[in-house]
Amino acid sequence: MASTCYQTQSLVNIAKQKKRFLMEAVWSRFSPIYLALEKAVQAGEFGEVKHVDVTFGTPIAMIEKNRKKELGGSSILTIGIYALQFAQFIFKDEPVKVTAVGNLNELGVDVTETVVLEYQGGRRAALNVDSTVKLWNKATVVGTKGRITLEDPFHFPEVMIRVDGTVEKIPLHTSNIPFKFMNSAGLVYQTLEVAKCIRKGLFESPRMPHKESLVLAKLEDTVRRQIGVHFDADDEKYP
C-alpha cells in the first residue's frame, strides 16, 4: 500500500479505537438515481453487466490547489475518485487488473488519466478523467440485454436513460440558497445518511463502508504509481 491507502487505513483504525463514526464523503452513493440504478441491476433489467464506461472532465487543472503536490493536487484524487467509485458501485468486486496511462503537469501532478479496470468473468470498466477540459461526463452500464446511461453530471445525476429508451428524472432536494457547483443540493442525502447511521449507533455506513474506501484508496494509489505520480507523503508512516 502507498500513502492514500495507508492514510485511509489509519483513519479507520482510529475511528474503531475511538468508537466514532467514519465515512468517506462519496455523496454519489446516496443519489436517488443511483438507488434506482442499483434496483435495475439487481432486477436484471439489462441482463448480466459486462461493461462500464465513464468520462469525467472539468477544467480545474490551473487552480492552485490542483496544480501542486504539497496541496494534494491530483486529477485522480480530485475527480477521478467519482469514476472509480462508479465502477466499484456496479461491479462490487476488486479488479483483478488495473491499467492506467496519463499526463502530468510541470510539477509532476496528474492532470489526465485513462484507466481500464478488469474484473473476473471478462467484465471491464473504461474510465477517462481529465482536469484540463470538459468531457461528456456521463456513465453507461452495458449488459447482455441493453444499457442504462446516467446523464451529466453522472456523479450526482437527475436523469437516467433506461434500456427501453425511456427517460427517468428524479428531481433533487431543492434549496433557496445558491450553489457554486451543479446539483450540490444533493449533498443533503449524504447528510441524512450520516444522521441515520449515528442515530442507529453505527460506526460506518452500509452504503459506503470502510472496506469500500480502502479498495478505492488502493486503486487511486495504483493509478498514481502507474503514471508516475509520487508525493512526499507516500514515504511517511501512519499509526
Rank of each mutant, 00 (worst) to 15 (best):
37 L>Y: 09
37 L>T: 10
237 K>Y: 13
117 L>S: 00
57 G>Y: 08
157 P>I: 06
119 Y>V: 05
101 V>Q: 08
88 Q>M: 15
18 K>T: 07
184 S>N: 07
153 P>Y: 06
183 N>W: 06
202 L>A: 08
233 A>G: 04
100 A>C: 11
163 V>F: 08
149 T>K: 07
156 F>E: 06
49 V>L: 15
26 V>M: 14
237 K>M: 13
34 Y>S: 09
206 P>L: 03
230 H>W: 02
183 N>I: 00
108 G>T: 00
208 M>Q: 14
114 T>Y: 08
152 D>V: 10
17 Q>N: 08
182 M>E: 06
1 M>L: 11
83 A>S: 12
171 P>T: 02
152 D>W: 06
210 H>T: 08
205 S>R: 00
143 G>V: 02
164 D>L: 10
36 A>T: 03
143 G>R: 02
215 V>Q: 10
177 I>D: 10
31 S>I: 08
81 I>V: 15
131 S>K: 04
78 T>M: 11
71 L>T: 11
172 L>Y: 03
194 V>E: 11
3 S>I: 02
99 T>S: 13
90 I>D: 05
221 D>W: 11
142 V>M: 04
85 Q>L: 08
179 F>P: 06
127 L>M: 05
166 T>A: 03
201 G>H: 07
37 L>S: 04
129 V>I: 15
84 L>H: 11
131 S>Q: 14
15 A>W: 02
90 I>C: 09
201 G>L: 15
151 E>C: 02
3 S>A: 14
158 E>W: 05
86 F>M: 09
160 M>K: 12
150 L>A: 00
95 P>A: 09
77 L>Y: 04
235 D>S: 10
44 G>R: 04
172 L>I: 12
158 E>M: 12
113 E>L: 12
111 V>L: 11
152 D>H: 02
105 N>C: 01
216 L>D: 07
80 G>W: 01
120 Q>T: 13
112 T>H: 02
169 K>G: 13
165 G>D: 11
199 R>A: 05
214 L>G: 06
206 P>E: 07
28 S>V: 01
97 K>S: 15
131 S>E: 00
207 R>S: 06
154 F>Y: 09
15 A>V: 12
168 E>H: 12
201 G>D: 04
86 F>N: 06
29 R>C: 01
38 E>I: 05
193 E>Q: 14
177 I>S: 01
192 L>F: 04
20 R>A: 13
194 V>L: 13
174 T>M: 03
